[in-house]
Amino acid sequence: MADLSAFPITRRWPARHPDRLQLYSFPTPNGVKVSIMLEEIGLPYEAHTIKIGDNETWTPEFLSLNPNGKIPAILDPDGPGGKPLALFESGAILVYLAEKTGKLLPADPAARYETLQWLFFQMAAVGPMFGQLGFFHKFAGREYEDKRPLERYRAESQRLLGVLEARLAGRDWIMGDDYTIADLALIGWVRNLIGFYEAAELVDYKSLTHVPAWLARGLARPAVQRGLEIPPRA
């Protein structure tokens, strides 16, 4: 039986199955990257709902795992060398899980780096831009009289969708025939942009061909369907 008592986060969110990977998350576009990944690779895990609306990420217990106060984060009792490993940042977690299991990341070095560049494209560009567009279009930012911020993020989000559209021309997935962590990282964000953020018209989503077809393929995957609901909101 793994001993996770040295990690303060387990005092607030106790591990019922300490031998399993512990996921601390909420079903946001960033959070579901890891739950989808875990469902895809079939690694046993235990999910803990972190109520971001109640500021649970700013509690001392959560900050002990991620000092940046953001979900998702994991605690793997069977990390490198058989020792527990705490990890935050969704991109880093995806790479770690892919390398741990040998799944969803090409073994060929050139293809591996090409996959990672598209993962970082999501992390550095798509996530921040889509998130800002959501804020200025749907949330408190919509009340701002100055519409220049909204237009900036709208234009950039539309441009990024165009980059993705061009990449998917003639491809089922970002890397061609193989579904990888690059697809997995992007699915939740594109889905959120046109769904929860209600920004499809703003970014002229209907003008795209390859992105909607790719998104439909991704959302049809059983592991994606399960991961989008993990951990439960309640």
Results as ranks from 00 to 15, higher is better:
Gly218Ile: 01
Ala185Asn: 00
Gly91Ser: 03
Asp146Thr: 01
Arg142Phe: 12
Val95Phe: 04
Pro8Trp: 01
Gln132Thr: 05
Gly79Ile: 00
Asp204Cys: 06
Gln22Glu: 10
Trp58Asn: 10
Trp189His: 09
Val32Trp: 05
Leu43Cys: 03
Leu215His: 07
Ala216Glu: 15
Gln158Gly: 12
Thr59Trp: 07
Gln22Gly: 03
Gly134Lys: 02
Ile36Gly: 08
Gln158Phe: 12
Asp78Ala: 14
Ile9Arg: 02
Ala107His: 12
Asp3Met: 08
Ile41Cys: 11
Arg152Ile: 09
Leu21Lys: 02
Gln158Asn: 12
Ala92Asn: 08
Val163Arg: 09
Arg159Glu: 14
Val95His: 02
Trp58Gly: 05
Pro80Ile: 01
Lys33Ile: 00
Pro232Trp: 03
Thr180Trp: 06
Glu39Gln: 01
Glu165Pro: 14
Leu65Ile: 14
Asp19Gly: 14
Ser5Gln: 07
Lys147Gln: 15
Val190Ile: 12
Gln122Ala: 09
Lys70Ser: 09
Asp76Ala: 03
Lys147Ser: 13
Arg11Met: 08
Arg159Thr: 11
Leu43Arg: 00
Pro231Asn: 00
Gly127Cys: 08
Ser157Pro: 14
Leu65Cys: 05
Ile9Ser: 11
Lys100Thr: 07
Ser207Leu: 08
Ala98Leu: 08
Thr59Ile: 08
Ile74Ala: 04
Met1Ala: 14
Thr115Lys: 03
Gly176Asn: 10
Pro106Thr: 03
Lys70Leu: 14
Glu201Asn: 12
Pro232Met: 05
Pro72Cys: 00
Leu219Ser: 06
Ile41Arg: 01
Leu202Val: 15
Ala185Thr: 00
Ala155Trp: 09
Glu151Val: 11
Glu39Gly: 03
Gly127Thr: 01
Ile174Asn: 04
Gln117Leu: 13
Arg171Thr: 09
Met129Gly: 10
Pro212Tyr: 13
Ala216Thr: 14
Ala169Phe: 11
Asn30Gly: 11
Asp19Met: 02
Phe26Glu: 02
Phe130Arg: 04
Phe196Val: 15
Ile181Glu: 12
Asp3Gly: 11
Ile174Tyr: 14
Gly162Gln: 09
Ile174Ala: 10
Asp204Asn: 15
Lys33Glu: 06
